[in-house]
């Protein structure tokens, strides 16, 4: 489904990704983990074509993505920082994205789930961080696409919204979708993910299930396993 082949990315002198090879061929939830600055978001942005890799190729459904744009209609994307035009209302944004994507969408049920109805006609600039993130989630999840990318989906969410989000992600999974998540909330990752891809300094340091990670690091607890990776890598 998704195939990263030898992806490298340099920003000036800073090497963010270094020859990353990653194949995601089965549906399921894949957690992309790593410390700050390890290249998680860059990897995702390369997949979407927002950032252009210095070298390497990316394939979605066997089609190379470089210079193409139609493949993006198969991807739902939740950006990490919900930067929206400040003078647009949530309703205008929803209408615009629906118009651009031209796909059936179920925004009404998502608006109810996140309790966004009172905020729909307010300008995005006046909304709180958490509410913006909810709008962000509605925009990302309202269309039905085989690939879902969630970059830090939990940031700013209250506990109730977090529970709803987990439910939604599980429902998406049962539909046979490929879901990529980055998060710093380890409990969420442990609960949801089928497989973990651990990035460190732009390279894939580990790939496997949560249990495999625990046994490789000889720890009982997922948090400790992650801490162990970070510690050993800095020795």
């Amino acid at each position: 489904m998704i195939d990263f082949k030898n992806i490298s990315k340099k920003f000036g002198k800073l090497q963010v990704l270094e020859q990353v090879d990653l194949t995601v061929d089965k549906p399921g939830i894949y957690a992309i983990l790593g410390p700050n600055g390890s290249g998680k978001t860059t990897l995702i942005k390369c997949l979407l074509g927002m950032t252009i890799p210095t070298s390497g190729h990316i394939f979605v459904d066997g089609q190379q993505t470089k210079g193409k744009w139609k493949f993006r209609s198969q991807i739902s994307y939740l950006p990490q920082i919900a930067n929206f035009p400040k003078n647009m209302t949530a309703n205008e944004l929803l209408r615009l994205i629906k118009n651009l994507r031209n796909q059936p969408s179920n925004e009404h049920s998502l608006i109810e789930v996140f309790g966004l109805r009172p905020y729909l006609d307010k300008k995005m600039g006046t909304l709180s961080g958490g509410t913006k993130q909810k709008v962000n989630l509605v925009l990302a999840l309202m269309t039905d696409n085989p690939i879902v990318i969630l970059d830090e989906p939990t940031s700013g969410l209250d506990p109730l919204a977090l529970i709803e989000l987990k439910k939604l992600i599980k429902i998406e999974k049962t539909k046979g979708k490929t879901i990529l998540i980055t998060s710093h909330i380890m409990s969420l990752v442990e609960e949801l993910s089928d497989e973990i891809v651990f990035l460190l300094e732009g390279k894939i340091h580990f790939r496997g299930t949560v249990d495999a990670l625990k046994s490789t690091t000889q720890t009982k607890n997922f948090d400790e396993a992650i801490a162990q990776i970070l510690k050993t890598s800095h020795v």
Partner: peptide, 10 residues
């Protein structure tokens, strides 16, 4: 910001 939003769309 708007451009970034659009870049992820088809």
């Amino acid at each position: 910001e708007f451009i970034e939003l659009l870049l992820a769309q088809p």
